[in-house]
Design a protein around this nucleic acid. Sequence first.
DNA 1: CGCCCACTTGACGATCATCAAGAGTGGTGG
DNA 2: CCACCACTCTTGATGATCGTCAAGTGGGCG
Lengths: 231, 231
Amino acid sequence: MYIHQVAYSKPSASQTAVTGWAELPGCQQSTQGYAAGTYLFYEGDDAAFVHEVVTGIVCNFRTMSDGRRQVVSFSYPGDLIGLVQGERHRFSSQTVSPARIRRIPKGALLKSAAARPEIAERLLDFATSELAILQERFVTLNRKSAQERIATFFLELVERLGDGNKGGSVTLTLPMRRRDMADYLGLSVETVSRILTVMKNSGVIDLPHSSVVVIRDIFELEDLAECEDEF
Amino acid sequence: MYIHQVAYSKPSASQTAVTGWAELPGCQQSTQGYAAGTYLFYEGDDAAFVHEVVTGIVCNFRTMSDGRRQVVSFSYPGDLIGLVQGERHRFSSQTVSPARIRRIPKGALLKSAAARPEIAERLLDFATSELAILQERFVTLNRKSAQERIATFFLELVERLGDGNKGGSVTLTLPMRRRDMADYLGLSVETVSRILTVMKNSGVIDLPHSSVVVIRDIFELEDLAECEDEF
DNA sequence: CGCCCACTTGACGATCATCAAGAGTGGTGG
DNA sequence: CCACCACTCTTGATGATCGTCAAGTGGGCG
């Protein structure tokens, strides 16, 4: 029930203007640093603040009663987390790397939106973009094979973390652990590991380190991801 | 990339006030009737109108290049479809039953929002609720077994179509075909059919007709759906 | 240096998709 | 009114994918 930007490329392209909520009245101008693994809030917590990621990566997830966990999204610098409609957060939010976070009082944000149409429009744009991203992700993950999911995920990461080097090989430093990836993609940790080995053996990627992925041929990766090319 | 209400109970409870966009300037006061199977728009179409479902059920889906189809949501009376951020629809929308639809010019809707904060707030509320519903659905479908998905889906339908009869047995008339259900739940048609037979044989439901489901014990169905009870 | 934790690899089984055929349903026309 | 046809739904058999359990391997940090 919160709003945040997820790792996905095309629909989020129009959101580069989303950063800069800091000038809003009542907003902390300073940011706060967190160690990796810190919870920003738990499912059920009072949703008094919207969080803006300044640096680092945040993992937003829901844990089921039987222990199954679903990562709904990762949030990257510039993303907002926790703009929920109700009183309480419906998901937990935890940093996966050291992060700097700006906390924006939700009440002040909504008051600004009521007073200034351009703020309201910006929030609505953000929400509809979020929706598009989630819908896209839905299509992606509900029908794709394990390999297609992982290929899609790497393309997302390239969009969000990439150094702009689009041709030839791209080096990705994975900020999250296998468990987070697996829970994001709806797979088991073992399957993620296995698929990575398969992709390495087939020459699509290289794994000089468990947290470093070298994409040898990004076009081949796009083929593996399927149906990402139709935009 | 459009906004609509999906079949889900808890987060959408606060949205009963969503109907009544008809009084907006520029909005057609009249509705238009469509036969079952009519496309409201196709993926890639210009998103000039937001559609409000007055009666009937609408299926919103995306088709992949290789034919795999993912139903993102079903829209029920009172739901909005197609409030997208960009210029074009990202999904196709098709009636699954005879329907009456009100078409609202998107430009007029956004202009109203800019002029009247309460309209903007309503739209934002709608969008964030939509987000919550999709996130919830995400958690639900990415980790659940076939039977859990179908049980969850029936509970959604009871919420949206139910006659308020919550105790004992409930009779559902399924407005969509097996293929739509399967594509919504990420299953094959055959699996849906098989699971229905299993649930019938175990006494949870009865199937007097292929499109009529009698839920014998809704609490047992809730047990089958899992992890819906934690709210 | 050694422990701990994440990651990898292997073996096996369960779930579900696919292919194929048969049964039920609705609609149309003779 | 019945018969035919097209379509949906059901059921069966088989296999592939992926999860689970279990045992290793390797890197990071004290």
